[in-house]
Structure formats: C-alpha cells, structure tokens
C-alpha cells in the first residue's frame, strides 16, 4: 500500500511540477500585476479603472455579445450536422470527421489570413460577384464577418463533443422509443436531445471560451477597426509605447473570471457528470 503511494507521488511529480511552473506561476504573475501599481504597491485601482473606463466597457460587452452569437450559431449548425453524421454509415462518418478536422490541421493564423484575402475588397468572392454583374460587398469591418470567422474557426469544437455524445446513445433506447410509438421527431426530442446535453454543454464552453478571448480574428477581419478584449490586452502588453502590464493583467484576470463563471453556470446545468462527451476543462 505504502509502496503504491510513494510510487504515485513519483509518477505524479513531473506533472505537478509542470502545472506549477507553467500554470500556477503565470497565474500568480497575472494576479500580482492586476493588484499592484507600476511601482509595485498594492491597489484596487486597476479593477476600478477597468470597470469605469468607457472604452474598456464597450470592448468588454462587444466581446461577450460576439462570443454569445458565435456560440449560438455554432450550436445551430453543429447539432443537426452531428445528428446526421451519426446516422450515416461508418465509412461516411470517418470521411465527414476527416472533413471537420482538416481545417484544424492548418494554423489558425494561416486560416484566418486566407479568409481575409478571400473576403478582401478585390478578393475571390468579390471578383466572382462582379463577374456575374453584382455589386462588390465590403465584407471586412463588419461585426458579422468577425462572428463568421469565429464560427468557422471553432465549429469543430462544437461538432466533436455533440457528435460523440449522440453517437454513443444506446441504439436499444431508440428502438424502444420507436416501439412505444414515437416518430423520429419524438425520438430526437425525448431521447437523443436529453442524452446529448453533456456534449452540447461541453461544446458551448469549448466555443464560448476561445471566442470571448479572441484577438487575431477580429483584427484581421476588421482591418484593426473593431477591437475585442483580446486585442486590448495585446495592445497593453505589446503595442503601446507605454506598455501597461498592470491594466493588461487586470483585463486578463477579469476575462478569466468571466470564463470561470460561465463554466460554473454551464456545469450547473449538467447534473450528470458521468455522461459521455463531457470534457473537463
């Protein structure tokens, strides 16, 4: 017994050390900077400044709004897709899975940059529109395009957990539902939907979290015009001629808290943690 315990400690040590150095210590730095002034003395002013600054609040609510939209749209697309995917034969499922995964093999920056070029004023889409006699459209710089960019980039994170929870629904339950007189819609509504909720919830968190902290997508798809909270953090640390780590860290901390709160809310809804498809973050 004792032997196993010390063995476990030895086996766990590298992971604990890793988490401590690369997760806990950076977090402590963020907390430290968020609650100190440039001289290192303790203060609550950063937090107060953040919540009373008109610009930061604009950006904050914008980020939340865009992230909610992107999550809802992803869900609306992903659920029917996942359902259909789970209904086709095994080889088609593998093929569809490959198609969903393929874009993720490319770096987010490259994918986003390519889309920016496609949507440009003289880009592929507008060239096509003009060749069939339509007016070119100014895509870049619209909120819709940024949300599109987020949906495009994070949709696989919604599809995968939903697909995995739908496809693991016991077939005998579906047969039972049919035998007892449910039509397809009834089966979806009464059997599949409730059983796939854990997948939906983890999909929501996996899309909402990266969306709310997005920065590169918004910059590329708005030519730097529409700032999201991630952009502001980047500016604070990196672009400003007077880098302000304190307010930068404060914004990061607030963002982390928002994410934790949304995770907690989502977890409240999932009463059964043992369900398949749930992803622990």
């Amino acid at each position: 017994m004792n032997k196993t315990k010390s063995g476990q400690v030895v086996l766990n040590a590298p992971y604990l050390l890793w988490s401590a150095i690369f997760i806990v210590v950076p977090l402590l730095f963020v907390v430290y900077y968020a609650f100190t002034t440039a001289n290192g003395s303790f203060t609550f002013n950063n937090i107060i400044n953040f919540f009373t600054n008109e610009q930061y609040m604009t950006v904050f609510w914008r980020s939340m709004l865009y992230a909610v939209w992107a999550t809802v749209i992803s869900l609306v697309i992903a659920y029917p897709f996942s359902y259909c995917m789970s209904k086709v034969n095994a080889s088609s499922q593998r093929m569809l899975m490959l198609l969903v995964m393929l874009p993720m093999l490319m770096n987010l920056v490259v994918r986003t940059y390519s889309w920016q070029q496609i949507l440009e004023k003289n880009g592929l889409v507008n060239t096509l529109l003009e060749s069939i006699g339509l007016e070119p459209i100014q895509f870049l710089g619209n909120a819709g395009v940024i949300i599109f960019g987020m949906v495009y980039n994070y949709l696989p994170f919604m599809i995968l957990p939903i697909y995995s929870s739908i496809s693991k629904v016991d077939k005998s339950l579906l047969e039972a539902s049919n035998d007892l007189g449910c039509n397809t819609f009834g089966t979806i509504q009464k059997v599949i939907l409730p059983l796939s909720i854990p997948g939906v919830l983890s999909g929501i968190t996996m899309v909402f979290v990266p969306c709310v902290s997005t920065f590169y997508i918004s910059r590329q798809f708005s030519d730097g015009n529409i700032k999201m909270i991630g952009d502001v953090i980047e500016d604070k640390f990196y672009r400003s001629s007077v880098p302000d780590y304190n307010i930068g860290a404060t914004i990061s901390l607030v963002l982390m808290l928002i994410i934790l709160i949304s995770l907690a809310v989502v977890n409240k809804f999932s009463d059964d943690d043992d369900q398949t498809g749930g992803v622990v973050i």
């Binding site: 870049l140 710089g141 708005s222 730097g224 015009n225």
Partner: peptide, 9 residues
C-alpha cells in the same frame, strides 16, 4: 472614412 489601421498588412 477609414478602411483600417494596419502595419505590415
């Protein structure tokens, strides 16, 4: 009237 703010883009 601005299209955007860019650096090397």
């Amino acid at each position: 009237i601005l299209q955007g703010r860019v650096m090397d883009e």
